[in-house]
Simulated assay, not measured.
Amino acid sequence: MTNDKNLVVSTDGSALSNPNGPMGWAWADHEGGDADAGGASNGTNQIGELCAVLQALRAHPGERPLIIETDSQYAINCSTTWVPGWKKKGWKNSQGKPVKNRPLIEAIDQEIQTRPGSVRFVWVKGHAGDTFNEKVDTLARGYATAAGKGDREGCLPVEGWRSLLASPYAKGTQVPSTVKEELDGGPQVLDDLGRKKVRLGQKEQKDLAETAVESEAVDAEQAESVAATFSGSPAAAADERDDVPSKAINDTPASDIADDQKDNPSPAFNDTSDTDTVDQETKNSGARGLRASGRIRITPPPSGSSMFTGQDLHIVGSIDLDAAIDPDGYVNIQEAPFRLHAIEVKD
């Protein structure tokens, strides 16, 4: 008998010092505690996001309706709204350039088209306390951190390796020798889920959560919160989510996309796939009409990074304030924590 209850899976990708920093991907079920993660010594956030979606699809075949929750508008758009136009244009984007990460996107499209059960995508706000979004963020960053240090071997689906090695950020990538042989037409070493290993056990998930604390983007409190999910899903998460949130993106016909945008404006539907970003989606957070003005200094500065190219960067982030405000609205900031959500790097 077919179980027609929704199966909900969260996915996330991570790149430290994006682009060309250590990269990770992860997915996690909302029931049962099942999860998987991987990454590479370097890559991009976008490749990580797409690897996570592809691996989640391949790990959850069958007729049961699948809902993929992600904070990546890029991953959602690549899997849904942009694909028809790219196919018509011969896999060129809105700028007339070849579509980045095409092997991954084509593989995702193939999985969605051939899966007996339906696939829906739901956008969730990143870094906002969602238990499973934090879990996959921590697992992805944990693997990225370990891969960057050489403590873990690169683990991507073969389409992920092809996308990464075809990108401008392939220099220095540590590709396992057996994977190189398969990429060169040798014997197959990756299983149908793109791995040479079984998916993550509970202990390995905890190990990655501890490793993630080494990354400035994940603090100990978040890792501790994530670790609490490894013994099983919280009661609230065990609900099988029959009611799809309003931001769900279905296999919507092109003629219906305009109406869908009116009702669900959060995911960006414009083709911005020629920009590499880190968690760009979080910049849409609300601020109740409040505005801040003035010059501040973020430390350490970009010039202190080994990845610094001498150019100005465009960043997206948020500042946590705990300070007095005077009647005219002025606040004196002293070493306020800054959470970096995005670094945009133009081609």
Results as ranks from 00 to 15, higher is better:
A254N: 05
N284S: 11
Q261Y: 13
N284M: 07
G294Q: 03
D263T: 11
D263N: 09
N250I: 05
E281K: 06
I257D: 00
G286N: 06
A287C: 07
Q280D: 12
G294H: 09
K262M: 04
A268Q: 10
G289C: 03
K262V: 04
I249C: 11
I249E: 14
S285L: 09
A248G: 12
T275K: 08
I249R: 08
L290N: 09
K247Q: 10
P265M: 01
Q280R: 11
I257T: 06
P245G: 06
R288N: 14
I249T: 14
D256V: 04
D279G: 15
S285F: 14
Q280V: 08
A248K: 00
A292H: 09
Q261N: 06
P253N: 08
N270Y: 10
R291P: 06
D279K: 01
A248P: 11
K247W: 07
P253S: 08
D274W: 13
S255W: 12
I257N: 01
D256Q: 15
A258V: 03
P267Y: 00
E281C: 13
D276C: 02
I257L: 13
N264L: 02
E281I: 04
D260H: 15
N264A: 09
D256E: 15
D263I: 07
N270F: 09
R288H: 14
R295Q: 05
G286T: 04
D271H: 05
G294C: 02
K247S: 14
T252A: 08
S255H: 11
A258L: 13
R295S: 02
S255G: 06
D259K: 13
D274R: 04
P265G: 02
D256H: 14
T275N: 10
S273V: 03
D271R: 05
S293A: 05
D256C: 02
N270W: 09
N264W: 01
I257S: 02
I249H: 07
S285C: 07
D259W: 03
P265V: 00
N284F: 13
A292L: 12
D259A: 14
T272N: 13
L290Q: 08
S293P: 04
R288Y: 15
S255C: 07
A258G: 09
D274G: 06
R291F: 15
S266D: 09
G289M: 04
S273D: 14
G289R: 02
A292V: 13
D259H: 07
Q280N: 14
N264G: 00
N270G: 08
S273M: 05
A292M: 13
D259L: 03
D271W: 08
A287I: 06
N250G: 12
T277Y: 11
T275P: 05
L290Y: 15
K283L: 08
D276I: 03
S255D: 14
P245S: 05
D274E: 05
G294S: 04
V244F: 13
A268W: 05
Q280Y: 15
P245F: 04
S273G: 15
T282W: 08
P245K: 01
A292S: 12
A292K: 07
S285I: 10
S285V: 11
K262L: 09
N264K: 12
R295Y: 03
S255A: 15
S285D: 12
T282P: 04
D251W: 02
V244P: 00
L290T: 04
P265K: 01
S293W: 04
A258M: 07
S293T: 07
S285E: 13
D276A: 00
I249F: 06
P267N: 01
Q280S: 11
N270H: 10
